[in-house]
Simulated scan of single mutants.
Amino acid sequence: MSQNTDLLLLTPGPTPIQPDALQALLIPMVGHMDPAVFALNARIQANLKVLYGAAADAFTALVAGTGSLGMETGFANLIEPGDTVVVATNGSFGDRMVEMCERYGAKVIVVRAPIGEAVRLEDVEKALKEHQPKMVSVVHGETSTGVLNPAPEIARMAQDMGILVTVDAVTTAGMMPYEMEKWGIDYAYTGSQKCLSAPPGVAPVAVSARAMEVVRNRKTPVTLWYSDFLGLQAYWDHRDYHHTIPVQLHYSLDAALSAALNEGLDVRARHAAELSVAVARTLETIGFSHFVKNPRERLPSVLSLRLPEGMNDLQVRTALREKGISITGGLDATRGLIWRLGLMGEAARTEHYMRFMRTLDEILGHRHLESTLEQNLTAVHA
């Protein structure tokens, strides 16, 4: 069976695998209780605290699943039947939070913003004061629409009120500075295949000491045995057997995480922001426009653009795929209306978007997109 080994992923995930992470997959198999693996895990835990800006006493680990398991793990541990939870949502992944909370028996208060707009702080504040929930949850960067939500401000507000805070960091942690302790976040998670550019299959999580205490004082057992924080902590911190971890994925994530921290989160954030602006300006010359109208609410790592009038979404994306470039369209209400271009990890490289513009020129019969991008990058950088 033939495969296109030169396929360039410019999607909102997965991203191209970081070279060191790819090489790490070739490390020979080691047992999950081997001293070398425990040393590996300890290094991952320390680096995750740096990634998230977590407190020294926070618990960090990898959950053996994708980012959606990272999301569910927090709710499984921190929610008991009858708890009140406020979920601020403006897209598919915020709605997923709502569904998960309901499945774990919570009374869910939904604070909703229109698609393409950030959730409003005053609406969240009103819900918190009126309902006094146990927890508030929000997606920092809503992948489905390219909106950046005011997660730091929501977290600070909730912390002052003694409310637990869960934040989805799937498209933010690793591409911009993240201050879990400073902002007052109790639980954060991402997916290995997003900003860190490792293979999918593990979800890096960080849990505050306050959240761990909530788990210890539960009245009912954690429903999801596999991801019980106390069981995971017994393995990660105390080296007790819990379940068989995907060792090679741990090695790969370790390599990708180290590469991201060595490059510098501030450097990665600045580069993604500049590239996002330059790509948008370039595509605006052929009729694309920002889906997220407020510039302050645009997520740099997922550029969401409305298609030009008359462009056939599927036809053009299929043509790009046939020429070795994969991009993603809209979800649900935005299907066929927008493109979502990933600028996370290894995808956020200038040479990749030069190739994208050159290929799009070929498909649409233009001759200026590549040179225009180069000019816009120079202007934005200056």
Rank of each mutant, 00 (worst) to 15 (best):
H131R: 09
I27M: 13
I115Y: 09
Y189Q: 03
D168V: 12
M135N: 10
F75M: 09
I79P: 02
H366K: 12
M161Y: 04
E72L: 06
T172I: 14
V207Q: 02
Q23E: 15
A127K: 04
N90G: 11
A260R: 07
A113P: 05
T372G: 02
I115W: 08
D83Y: 00
W339I: 14
R306L: 07
M161F: 02
F356P: 14
A269G: 10
L320A: 13
T171C: 12
A169T: 08
I363K: 08
L249G: 02
V108L: 13
I185T: 05
A54W: 10
V170T: 14
A55C: 04
A54K: 04
P16Y: 10
N294P: 01
I325G: 15
H32D: 15
G329Q: 09
R340V: 14
D95K: 10
P133L: 08
P133A: 08
T143I: 13
V277T: 15
H366P: 00
Y187R: 02
V215F: 02
Y353I: 07
V247M: 00
T372M: 04
E309W: 10
Q23Y: 06
M357H: 01
V50M: 11
V37C: 02
G324I: 05
G184H: 05
V202G: 05
T11A: 11
T11G: 12
F75G: 06
L26N: 11
E370L: 05
D168H: 14
P16F: 07
R120G: 10
V119A: 05
H131M: 08
V215L: 03
P81D: 09
N77T: 00
A151G: 09
L196E: 05
A206I: 04
L128A: 01
A36Q: 15
H32C: 15
Q233W: 04
Q45C: 15
P28A: 08
P150W: 01
H131L: 06
M1Q: 09
T143P: 05
